[in-house]
Write a protein that binds this DNA or RNA. Structure first.
Length: 750
DNA sequence: TCGACGATCGTTTTT
DNA sequence: CGATCGTCGA
């Protein structure tokens, strides 16, 4: 690495790179060159300080981030960085657990259960207790379990139980224990268990921990604001001795607390590592001056933060556009018209992104973009590996590498149908439970010693089917043991199980798509074999469970595609032109977060901050007066966050009037006519709304007393829309709030 | 064992 | 409104 790489960094970045020893916390604002700094730091450790890559551990959250960073380091460094541990927390822990499996009574080929498998286990537990899923949802159990694992709990970890006051007599705790037993029997570990398992390993076997402490002289953590308590403990343990730990994060971009991310990890870092060197990267290289100032003003409203002063040398740029639309459809068509306009100005589609708070909002945007024939790409969508056919075939593969994986076996024992239905399966399960062995052992035993199983009365047909099935699995297992290529095993399974023919036989459109997916899986396996030096089926399965992203990088045209995604999906990305849609109360912030109180609101604000700071040149925030939600039109009013943008940094297009705004009490007085900037969208629907509302006044203004012939007397707390569209919110004497369309409700003024 | 029907309910999802 | 899920009937 040449030294220019350091001298081209700003001073704070240089410090972040050069302070190689001792704990460092880098608070890196959005667009502050965080990745570049981290990459340079690692490269310098290896190239300049001659630290062996083998001794460096860099943890990220996504595989994508890990790959990208590894690549960038590779270009900076002459050394071979093959031994550099640059992976996700989960992949790292999986690796540790496989190497040390015997300490925890696992075998090294354990299966990793994704959410779907975990859910099945939870369902089974409920069933065994005779609890219907209506009473207790499997997710309730899973949430409980993952919340325990998020704080690093394993059965027997007393200190955590005390700190968090865990009630061992809670039925949920019992389910948790049963769940753990179940997984252990299946030689399986879930996502949270990967982290918690390593903590357990390190606490119970200090000599093992010691080995890792000695190996990893330098530990780095990216996206530190997203770590949960368990991950924090893990970092703490690993770095206890060398104390060469560098965490990089931004508390203002912590948007995953609902998944266990604990903002205290940032707040408390200093407490655990008192000698920490805190470095703030505050210069933004991404966005225009106005966008930065607007975003900074918004996030300043949060109390849970260390506080940064973002600034930029970039030009001021244009003001943030806030656009009010009549409804969600018109919002979508507004966005599409703007996309058209940008296209005509020569802006490539790939420079444009549309964000929304919830996935369901993408639909109308998609429709509108299709109408103008603008290519777009919806980021997220259904996960490839969650599709039925993929999960089916994967279950075969899982069984082959881990015959204790009874869940996998139960999934495919009758897929494709071979006459072994639910009843037969239940009998086999009974046998397995009674003799305390795995389902697979029973199946094999039934095949080999069928006399022993006369009492469960399996028909000859079923026995034959089981024999064929067992034969296939055994042959495949043999292939696996002889290091046959994963692809060959896959092909064997796919065809000899009859799965392929079974799909081929039904000629419907869906089956066709499924066949295509299976071919895609085949090419994913081939890809894996090309990438790995010693590809194994176990390795493939792990990659799949831990790296669910299948990005098809197929570009449609040279102009690229408009990107559509949730705000969560936008983290870490940047686009010259950004539209944030549905910036309304109850949507963004979401109604769900709002009833979590202050904390929920702050997280939504961070999310909004993330959305704003993705934009480089132009930021447009749109909201609709009325929106179709759950089958009926809801009148939410503009988001409180819009009000938090100082007027000098934004302009409101469309209607400034009473309609949308009065429904948010606090906003009302702040928005007078001077805020309204004459817009240039003449043919806009937005315009229609304005002309309508400027002509008439609401029939039921705020504060007036009304009589509802069904509910009695009440007071108007807000009025939205005018004329036929007028909708009022009434607070009745018992405190109940209800919304009515004036057109239909039996109302009269008192 | 599958499919048709009705009830229910509704964020975000790096691993 | 619409996806998902459970129940019931054939």
């Amino acid at each position: 690495m040449n030294m220019e790489d350091v001298s081209s960094l700003n001073e704070a970045q240089q410090q972040a790179v050069l302070n190689k020893d001792g704990p460092v916390m880098i608070l890196a604002g959005a667009g502050s060159g965080k990745t570049r700094t981290l990459v340079t730091r690692i490269a310098r450790l290896i190239e300049h300080d001659r630290i062996s890559p083998f001794k460096v551990l860099a943890l990220t959250f996504s595989n994508k981030a890990a790959r990208e960073m590894r690549e960038r380091i590779n270009t900076l460094v002459s050394a071979d960085i093959g031994a550099l541990q640059m992976t996700t927390f989960h992949a790292f822990c999986a690796k540790v657990l496989r190497s040390e499996a015997r300490y925890l009574g696992l075998s090294r080929n354990f299966t990793i259960y994704a959410t779907a498998e975990s859910k099945s286990v939870a369902k089974g537990i409920l069933q065994r207790h005779g609890i219907s899923q209506k009473e207790v949802s499997p997710f309730e159990i899973l949430n409980y379990i993952s919340s325990l694992k998020n704080i690093g709990h394993y059965d027997g970890r007393k200190d955590v139980e005390e700190t968090y006051d865990i009630d061992r007599s809670d039925p949920l705790f019992t389910y948790y224990q049963e769940y753990e037993n179940e997984l252990h029997k299946a030689n399986a570990v879930d996502f949270g268990g990967l982290i918690a398992g390593v903590i357990q390993l390190f606490e119970l076997y200090p000599e093992v921990l010691n080995r890792y402490q000695e190996r990893f002289e330098y530990v780095l953590v990216d996206e530190y604001q997203d770590t949960n308590r368990a991950q924090f403990d893990l970092i703490r343990m690993l770095c206890e001795k060398t104390r060469n730990v560098c965490v990089v994060g931004d508390e203002d971009q912590s948007i995953y607390s609902w998944r266990g991310a604990d903002i205290r990890n940032i707040m408390d870092f200093e407490g655990v590592f008192p000698e920490v060197n805190i470095i703030k990267l505050e210069q933004n290289y991404r966005s225009s001056g106005i966008i930065i100032e607007a975003a900074t003003s918004v996030i300043a409203k949060n109390t849970q933060r260390k506080g940064k002063n973002m600034w930029t040398d970039n030009p001021e740029g244009e003001v943030v556009r806030i656009v009010e639309c009549a409804d969600d459809k018109k919002e979508a068509s507004y966005v599409s018209r703007e996309v058209e306009r940008l296209r005509d100005e020569g802006v490539p589609f790939s420079d444009i992104a549309v964000f929304y708070r919830t996935n369901s909002q993408s639909r109308l945007i998609e429709d509108a973009l299709r109408k103008i024939r603008a290519p777009y790409r919806v980021v997220a969508g259904l996960k490839f590996y969650e599709r039925k056919e993929i999960k089916d075939v994967m279950a075969y593969l899982r069984l082959i590498v881990n015959d204790k994986d009874s869940l996998a076996l139960s999934r495919i024992i009758n897929v494709p149908a071979r006459g072994v239905g639910a009843t037969s399966l239940r009998k086999l399960e009974q046998e397995a439970i009674q003799s305390g062995c795995s389902l697979w052992e029973i199946v094999q035993d039934v095949v080999e010693n069928s006399d022993k199983y006369k009492h469960i009365r399996l028909s000859a047909k079923i026995k034959k089917a089981l024999a064929e099935f067992a034969h296939l699995i055994n042959e495949s297992t043999l292939m696996e043991e002889q290091n046959e290529s994963p692809e060959k095993i896959y092909e064997k399974i796919l065809h000899e199980s009859g799965y392929w023919d079974f799909l081929k036989a039904s000629k419907d459109y869906e089956s066709l798509a499924r066949l295509e997916n299976l071919e895609e899986l085949a090419s994913a396996i081939k890809q894996f074999e090309d990438d790995e030096s010693k590809p194994s089926l176990t390795g493939f399965l792990e990659t799949v469970t831990l790296d669910q992203n299948v990005d098809d990088e197929s570009q449609s045209s040279e102009l690229g595609e408009v990107s559509l995604m949730t705000v969560h999906g936008a983290k870490g990305l940047e686009f010259p032109y950004v539209f944030v849609t549905g910036v309304e109360e109850n949507i963004f912030p979401s109604y769900r977060s709002l009833d979590e109180g202050e904390f929920g609101e702050e997280e939504e604000r961070r999310l909004f901050y993330v959305a704003m700071t993705r934009a480089m040149k132009q930021l447009t925030l749109t909201f609709a007066q009325g929106r179709m939600l759950f089958g009926q039109v809801k009148f939410n009013g503009p988001s409180r966050f819009l009000q938090e943008i100082p007027k000098k940094f934004c302009e409101w297009k469309g209607n400034s009037g009473t309609a949308g705004l009065e429904s948010v009490n606090s906003v009302q007085s702040d928005w007078s006519d001077e805020d309204f900037v004459q817009d240039s969208y003449d043919e806009d629907e937005v315009y229609e709304v304005r002309s309508k509302s400027s002509q008439r006044k609401p029939g039921y203004p705020k504060g007036s007393k009304v009589m509802h012939s069904l509910y009695g007397e009440g007071k108007i707390t807000s009025t939205v829309g005018l004329g036929e569209e007028e909708v009022v919110t009434i607070k009745f004497h018992d405190g109940a709030m209800k919304k009515f369309s004036v057109k239909f409700a039996p109302l009269s003024l008192i």
